[in-house]
Protein backbone atom coordinates (compact mmCIF):
# COMPACT_ATOMS: atom_id res chain seq x y z
CA UNK A 1 0.00 0.00 0.00
CA UNK A 2 1.13 3.47 -0.57
CA UNK A 3 3.01 5.53 1.95
CA UNK A 4 0.79 7.77 4.03
CA UNK A 5 2.00 10.88 5.75
CA UNK A 6 -0.07 12.81 8.20
CA UNK A 7 -0.32 16.50 7.75
CA UNK A 8 -2.11 18.74 10.20
CA UNK A 9 -4.44 21.40 9.06
CA UNK A 10 -7.72 22.96 9.76
CA UNK A 11 -10.84 22.08 7.89
CA UNK A 12 -13.08 24.69 6.39
CA UNK A 13 -16.26 22.91 5.53
CA UNK A 14 -16.84 20.72 8.56
CA UNK A 15 -15.24 23.00 11.06
CA UNK A 16 -18.34 23.69 13.06
CA UNK A 17 -18.99 20.04 13.69
CA UNK A 18 -15.52 18.78 14.40
CA UNK A 19 -12.27 19.43 16.17
CA UNK A 20 -10.56 22.41 14.73
CA UNK A 21 -7.32 20.59 14.20
CA UNK A 22 -7.58 17.60 11.96
CA UNK A 23 -5.12 15.10 10.63
CA UNK A 24 -4.99 15.06 6.88
CA UNK A 25 -3.61 12.13 4.98
CA UNK A 26 -1.01 12.78 2.35
CA UNK A 27 -0.97 9.65 0.23
CA UNK A 28 2.10 8.85 -1.83
CA UNK A 29 1.51 5.87 -4.10
CA UNK A 30 4.52 4.66 -6.03
CA UNK A 31 2.62 2.75 -8.69
CA UNK A 32 -0.58 3.10 -10.63
CA UNK A 33 -2.08 0.10 -8.88
CA UNK A 34 -1.37 1.66 -5.49
CA UNK A 35 -2.83 4.93 -6.62
CA UNK A 36 -6.04 3.35 -7.85
CA UNK A 37 -6.38 1.32 -4.69
CA UNK A 38 -5.90 4.44 -2.63
CA UNK A 39 -8.44 6.37 -4.65
CA UNK A 40 -10.93 3.52 -4.32
CA UNK A 41 -10.48 3.48 -0.60
CA UNK A 42 -10.41 7.25 -0.23
CA UNK A 43 -12.56 8.74 -2.99
CA UNK A 44 -12.41 12.06 -1.13
CA UNK A 45 -8.66 12.28 -1.69
CA UNK A 46 -7.76 15.14 -4.03
CA UNK A 47 -5.17 14.16 -6.61
CA UNK A 48 -2.22 16.51 -6.90
CA UNK A 49 0.49 16.52 -9.56
CA UNK A 50 2.00 19.88 -10.50
CA UNK A 51 -0.08 21.57 -7.83
CA UNK A 52 -0.59 24.73 -9.85
CA UNK A 53 -4.34 24.67 -9.24
CA UNK A 54 -4.67 22.60 -6.07
CA UNK A 55 -2.07 24.54 -4.09
CA UNK A 56 -3.76 27.85 -4.87
CA UNK A 57 -7.00 26.44 -3.53
CA UNK A 58 -5.26 25.19 -0.40
CA UNK A 59 -3.21 28.31 0.19
CA UNK A 60 -6.22 30.58 -0.08
CA UNK A 61 -8.13 28.26 2.23
CA UNK A 62 -10.83 27.61 -0.34
CA UNK A 63 -10.73 23.87 0.12
CA UNK A 64 -9.35 21.55 2.75
CA UNK A 65 -9.77 17.94 1.64
CA UNK A 66 -9.40 15.03 4.06
CA UNK A 67 -6.62 13.61 1.96
CA UNK A 68 -4.26 14.52 -0.84
CA UNK A 69 -3.17 11.91 -3.35
CA UNK A 70 0.28 12.78 -4.62
CA UNK A 71 0.69 11.41 -8.14
CA UNK A 72 4.25 12.56 -8.71
CA UNK A 73 5.72 9.25 -7.60
CA UNK A 74 4.07 7.31 -10.42
CA UNK A 75 6.56 7.15 -13.25
CA UNK A 76 4.14 6.06 -15.96
CA UNK A 77 1.98 9.14 -15.52
CA UNK A 78 4.88 11.29 -16.58
CA UNK A 79 5.49 9.35 -19.80
CA UNK A 80 4.14 9.59 -23.29
CA UNK A 81 4.18 6.85 -25.90
CA UNK A 82 3.07 5.97 -29.42
CA UNK A 83 -0.25 4.23 -29.60
CA UNK A 84 0.69 2.15 -32.62
CA UNK A 85 -1.88 3.75 -34.92
CA UNK A 86 0.07 6.98 -35.21
CA UNK A 87 -1.48 8.55 -32.18
CA UNK A 88 0.04 9.48 -28.88
CA UNK A 89 -0.84 8.42 -25.39
CA UNK A 90 0.09 11.36 -23.23
CA UNK A 91 0.45 10.56 -19.54
CA UNK A 92 -1.65 12.87 -17.41
CA UNK A 93 1.44 14.03 -15.53
CA UNK A 94 3.56 15.18 -18.48
CA UNK A 95 4.36 18.85 -17.96
CA UNK A 96 3.50 21.57 -20.46
CA UNK A 97 7.19 22.28 -20.89
CA UNK A 98 7.79 18.71 -22.03
CA UNK A 99 4.83 18.82 -24.40
CA UNK A 100 6.35 21.91 -26.01
CA UNK A 101 9.87 20.55 -26.26
CA UNK A 102 9.22 16.85 -26.92
CA UNK A 103 5.93 16.87 -28.83
CA UNK A 104 5.89 20.26 -30.51
CA UNK A 105 5.99 18.67 -33.98
CA UNK A 106 3.61 15.80 -33.42
CA UNK A 107 1.00 17.62 -31.36
CA UNK A 108 1.22 21.13 -32.77
CA UNK A 109 -2.12 22.37 -31.44
CA UNK A 110 -1.52 21.10 -27.94
CA UNK A 111 1.98 22.56 -27.96
CA UNK A 112 0.62 25.95 -29.04
CA UNK A 113 -1.89 25.90 -26.20
CA UNK A 114 0.81 24.77 -23.78
CA UNK A 115 2.96 27.76 -24.73
CA UNK A 116 0.20 30.09 -23.55
CA UNK A 117 -0.09 28.51 -20.11
CA UNK A 118 1.11 30.78 -17.30
CA UNK A 119 4.79 31.43 -16.83
CA UNK A 120 7.78 29.14 -17.45
CA UNK A 121 7.62 28.07 -13.80
CA UNK A 122 3.96 27.10 -14.14
CA UNK A 123 4.61 25.29 -17.42
CA UNK A 124 7.36 23.30 -15.70
CA UNK A 125 4.86 22.06 -13.13
CA UNK A 126 1.43 22.11 -14.74
CA UNK A 127 -0.03 19.14 -16.61
CA UNK A 128 -2.87 18.37 -19.01
CA UNK A 129 -4.19 15.96 -16.39
CA UNK A 130 -4.50 18.87 -14.01
CA UNK A 131 -6.22 20.99 -16.64
CA UNK A 132 -8.77 18.21 -17.09
CA UNK A 133 -9.11 17.60 -13.36
CA UNK A 134 -9.97 21.23 -12.74
CA UNK A 135 -12.20 21.27 -15.85
CA UNK A 136 -12.31 25.05 -15.79
CA UNK A 137 -13.87 26.45 -18.96
CA UNK A 138 -10.82 28.72 -19.15
CA UNK A 139 -8.33 25.83 -19.16
CA UNK A 140 -5.98 26.35 -22.07
CA UNK A 141 -5.76 22.83 -23.43
CA UNK A 142 -9.47 21.97 -23.61
CA UNK A 143 -10.19 23.58 -27.00
CA UNK A 144 -7.33 21.62 -28.55
CA UNK A 145 -8.52 18.34 -27.04
CA UNK A 146 -11.97 18.99 -28.52
CA UNK A 147 -10.68 20.05 -31.92
CA UNK A 148 -8.29 17.16 -32.32
CA UNK A 149 -10.79 14.52 -31.24
CA UNK A 150 -8.78 13.51 -28.21
CA UNK A 151 -10.03 11.10 -25.58
CA UNK A 152 -9.45 11.04 -21.87
CA UNK A 153 -8.37 7.82 -20.23
CA UNK A 154 -9.91 7.29 -16.80
CA UNK A 155 -8.87 4.47 -14.52
CA UNK A 156 -10.15 2.95 -11.33
CA UNK A 157 -9.95 -0.41 -9.63
CA UNK A 158 -13.14 -1.13 -11.58
CA UNK A 159 -11.22 -0.85 -14.83
CA UNK A 160 -10.26 1.51 -17.57
CA UNK A 161 -12.53 3.63 -19.72
CA UNK A 162 -11.91 6.09 -22.47
CA UNK A 163 -14.13 9.16 -22.79
CA UNK A 164 -14.10 11.45 -25.81
CA UNK A 165 -13.10 14.95 -24.72
CA UNK A 166 -16.43 16.22 -25.93
CA UNK A 167 -18.22 14.06 -23.38
CA UNK A 168 -15.78 14.73 -20.57
CA UNK A 169 -16.94 18.21 -19.56
CA UNK A 170 -20.40 18.41 -18.04
CA UNK A 171 -20.55 21.80 -16.31
CA UNK A 172 -18.54 24.64 -14.80
CA UNK A 173 -15.53 22.89 -13.29
CA UNK A 174 -17.36 19.57 -13.49
CA UNK A 175 -16.55 16.45 -15.51
CA UNK A 176 -17.60 12.81 -15.81
CA UNK A 177 -14.69 11.79 -13.61
CA UNK A 178 -16.04 9.45 -10.91
CA UNK A 179 -14.90 9.86 -7.31
CA UNK A 180 -12.85 6.65 -7.42
CA UNK A 181 -11.27 7.41 -10.78
CA UNK A 182 -8.01 9.02 -11.77
CA UNK A 183 -7.19 10.73 -15.06
CA UNK A 184 -4.32 8.63 -16.33
CA UNK A 185 -3.75 9.79 -19.89
CA UNK A 186 -4.99 11.67 -22.90
CA UNK A 187 -5.14 9.89 -26.23
CA UNK A 188 -4.48 12.14 -29.17
CA UNK A 189 -4.90 10.96 -32.75
CA UNK A 190 -1.86 11.20 -34.94
CA UNK A 191 -1.91 13.75 -37.69
CA UNK A 192 0.28 15.57 -40.09
CA UNK A 193 -2.46 18.06 -40.87
CA UNK A 194 -2.32 21.63 -39.58
CA UNK A 195 -3.68 22.66 -36.20
CA UNK A 196 -3.93 26.08 -34.63
CA UNK A 197 -4.66 27.49 -31.21
CA UNK A 198 -5.28 31.10 -30.37
CA UNK A 199 -6.14 32.80 -27.09
CA UNK A 200 -7.21 36.28 -26.10
CA UNK A 201 -5.80 37.84 -22.95
CA UNK A 202 -5.48 41.45 -21.97
CA UNK A 203 -1.75 41.30 -21.67
CA UNK A 204 0.84 39.75 -23.88
CA UNK A 205 1.88 36.84 -21.67
CA UNK A 206 0.94 35.02 -18.48
CA UNK A 207 -2.74 35.66 -18.74
CA UNK A 208 -5.89 33.68 -18.19
CA UNK A 209 -8.03 33.27 -21.30
CA UNK A 210 -10.71 35.84 -22.03
CA UNK A 211 -11.63 33.38 -24.76
CA UNK A 212 -9.75 30.90 -26.89
CA UNK A 213 -10.19 28.82 -29.99
CA UNK A 214 -8.59 25.74 -31.53
CA UNK A 215 -8.94 24.26 -34.98
CA UNK A 216 -7.66 20.97 -36.34
CA UNK A 217 -7.93 19.83 -39.94
CA UNK A 218 -8.72 16.17 -40.50
CA UNK A 219 -8.11 15.52 -44.21
CA UNK A 220 -7.86 11.79 -43.50
CA UNK A 221 -11.59 11.83 -42.79
CA UNK A 222 -12.53 13.33 -46.13
CA UNK A 223 -13.39 9.91 -47.52
CA UNK A 224 -15.38 8.83 -44.46
CA UNK A 225 -17.99 11.51 -44.56
CA UNK A 226 -17.09 12.52 -41.01
CA UNK A 227 -16.29 16.07 -40.06
CA UNK A 228 -13.02 17.11 -41.63
CA UNK A 229 -12.63 20.08 -39.33
CA UNK A 230 -12.43 19.98 -35.57
CA UNK A 231 -13.08 22.99 -33.38
CA UNK A 232 -12.89 23.91 -29.73
CA UNK A 233 -13.97 27.06 -27.89
CA UNK A 234 -12.58 28.01 -24.49
CA UNK A 235 -13.73 30.43 -21.83
CA UNK A 236 -16.95 31.33 -23.60
CA UNK A 237 -19.47 29.01 -22.01
CA UNK A 238 -19.97 26.90 -18.90
CA UNK A 239 -17.79 24.20 -20.45
CA UNK A 240 -15.34 24.08 -23.32
CA UNK A 241 -17.45 23.81 -26.47
CA UNK A 242 -17.34 22.47 -30.00
CA UNK A 243 -18.71 24.64 -32.77
CA UNK A 244 -20.49 21.84 -34.58
CA UNK A 245 -22.43 24.05 -36.98
CA UNK A 246 -19.20 25.68 -38.05
CA UNK A 247 -17.59 22.27 -38.50
CA UNK A 248 -20.49 21.04 -40.61
CA UNK A 249 -20.49 24.17 -42.74
CA UNK A 250 -16.80 24.01 -43.45
CA UNK A 251 -16.77 20.25 -44.01
CA UNK A 252 -19.43 20.72 -46.66
CA UNK A 253 -17.71 23.69 -48.26
CA UNK A 254 -14.41 21.87 -48.52
CA UNK A 255 -16.01 18.72 -49.88
CA UNK A 256 -18.17 20.52 -52.45
CA UNK A 257 -15.24 22.44 -53.83
CA UNK A 258 -13.02 19.36 -53.83
CA UNK A 259 -10.63 21.35 -51.73
CA UNK A 260 -8.95 18.43 -50.00
CA UNK A 261 -7.48 16.99 -53.18
CA UNK A 262 -6.78 20.26 -54.94
CA UNK A 263 -6.65 22.92 -52.28
CA UNK A 264 -7.03 26.56 -53.19
CA UNK A 265 -7.26 29.71 -51.14
CA UNK A 266 -10.51 29.94 -49.22
CA UNK A 267 -12.91 32.68 -50.11
CA UNK A 268 -13.06 35.40 -47.54
CA UNK A 269 -16.81 34.80 -47.33
CA UNK A 270 -16.19 31.18 -46.29
CA UNK A 271 -13.78 32.18 -43.57
CA UNK A 272 -16.15 34.84 -42.31
CA UNK A 273 -19.10 32.49 -42.29
CA UNK A 274 -17.01 30.00 -40.36
CA UNK A 275 -16.08 32.69 -37.85
CA UNK A 276 -19.67 33.76 -37.43
CA UNK A 277 -20.79 30.19 -36.82
CA UNK A 278 -18.08 29.72 -34.20
CA UNK A 279 -19.18 32.90 -32.45
CA UNK A 280 -22.77 31.70 -32.57
CA UNK A 281 -21.79 28.43 -30.90
CA UNK A 282 -20.44 30.22 -27.84
CA UNK A 283 -22.50 31.25 -24.85
CA UNK A 284 -20.26 33.78 -23.18
CA UNK A 285 -20.97 35.96 -20.15
CA UNK A 286 -19.89 39.43 -19.02
CA UNK A 287 -17.27 39.24 -16.31
CA UNK A 288 -14.17 41.06 -15.07
CA UNK A 289 -12.11 39.63 -17.88
CA UNK A 290 -14.28 40.78 -20.75
CA UNK A 291 -17.73 41.41 -22.05
CA UNK A 292 -19.85 38.72 -23.66
CA UNK A 293 -20.06 40.87 -26.77
CA UNK A 294 -16.29 41.12 -26.99
CA UNK A 295 -15.84 37.39 -26.50
CA UNK A 296 -18.26 36.63 -29.30
CA UNK A 297 -16.62 39.19 -31.56
CA UNK A 298 -13.14 37.96 -30.77
CA UNK A 299 -14.07 34.31 -31.33
CA UNK A 300 -15.29 35.15 -34.82
CA UNK A 301 -11.97 36.83 -35.55
CA UNK A 302 -9.88 34.04 -34.01
CA UNK A 303 -11.82 31.38 -35.89
CA UNK A 304 -11.43 33.20 -39.19
CA UNK A 305 -7.74 33.81 -38.69
CA UNK A 306 -6.83 30.36 -37.39
CA UNK A 307 -8.73 28.76 -40.26
CA UNK A 308 -6.77 30.95 -42.64
CA UNK A 309 -3.45 29.95 -41.10
CA UNK A 310 -4.30 26.25 -40.92
CA UNK A 311 -5.61 26.18 -44.47
CA UNK A 312 -2.62 28.09 -45.75
CA UNK A 313 -0.34 25.50 -44.17
CA UNK A 314 -2.39 22.70 -45.69
CA UNK A 315 -2.11 24.30 -49.11
CA UNK A 316 1.63 24.73 -48.74
CA UNK A 317 1.95 21.05 -47.93
CA UNK A 318 -0.14 19.93 -50.90
CA UNK A 319 0.39 22.46 -53.64
CA UNK A 320 1.46 25.98 -54.18
CA UNK A 321 -1.85 27.09 -55.65
CA UNK A 322 -3.15 28.88 -52.60
CA UNK A 323 -1.06 31.95 -53.14
Amino acid sequence: MCTTYSVTWYDTTTWYDSEEIREVDFLRPSSMAEALAAKAERPDAVPIAGGTDVMVELNFDRTRPDALLDLTGIAELAEWSDTGDGGIRLGAGVSYTRIITELGQRLPGLAMASRTVGSPQIRNRGTVGGNLGAASPAGDTHPVLLATGASVELASTRGLRTVPAEEFYVGVKRSVLAPDELITAVLLPGTTAPQQFSKIGTRNAMVIAVCSFAIALHPEQAATGNSTVGTGIGSAGPTPLRATEAERFLTAELANADQWTSPRALDDSVRRRFGDLVAAAASPIDDVRGSAAYRRHALAVLARRTLGWAWWDYCLERTSRCA
Binding site: R115, T116, F197, S198, K199, I200, R203, N204, R305
Partner: peptide
Amino acid sequence: PGGVSNTTHAE
Protein backbone atom coordinates in the same frame (compact mmCIF):
# COMPACT_ATOMS: atom_id res chain seq x y z
CA PRO B 1 -0.15 42.32 -30.06
CA GLY B 2 -1.42 39.32 -28.11
CA GLY B 3 2.10 37.96 -27.79
CA VAL B 4 2.59 34.22 -27.54
CA SER B 5 -1.17 33.72 -27.38
CA ASN B 6 -1.00 33.57 -31.17
CA THR B 7 -3.80 35.96 -32.02
CA THR B 8 -2.32 37.64 -35.06
CA HIS B 9 0.41 36.96 -37.59
CA ALA B 10 0.43 40.69 -38.40
CA GLU B 11 -3.12 40.77 -39.76
